[in-house]
């Protein structure tokens, strides 16, 4: 899973439409991750095909996306993987910094 995919899944913990997802990603990454509309649209259509996200009721003509259970599970797995990676690096990297 790429960083971009991870953040899209993270943002969709609350159902949102496309443009709102971009804002949510910027906010929850505290401005570190800025996603372009091309990248976002590509990820959304792929994840929709892979059934990780689904359409909720359309808000006017804008589609609102939400996580499916498969998407939520994929996000959880990725979160655990990243957490394990951080933990694995913690001792060596932080000790390295101190010493």
């Amino acid at each position: 899973m790429t960083e971009a995919m991870y953040y899209v899944l993270l943002a969709l913990c609350t159902p949102l439409h496309g443009y709102a997802i971009m804002g949510a990603i910027e906010e929850l990454s505290r401005g570190r991750v800025v996603m372009g509309p091309g990248t976002l649209y590509g990820i959304l259509s792929r994840m929709e095909k892979e059934k990780m996200i689904a359409l909720e009721e359309a808000d006017g003509r804008r589609k609102i996306y939400k996580l499916t259970s498969a998407g939520r599970e994929a996000l959880r797995q990725e979160y655990l993987r990243l957490k394990a990676m951080v933990a694995d690096g913690k001792t060596l990297v932080e000790e390295g910094d101190n010493g």
Partner: peptide
């Protein structure tokens, strides 16, 4: 205004 594609890896399949 951000670039349309901010992730080259995601852009590759296009």
């Amino acid at each position: 205004v951000p670039e349309i594609h901010t992730d080259p890896v995601e852009m590759a399949p296009t």
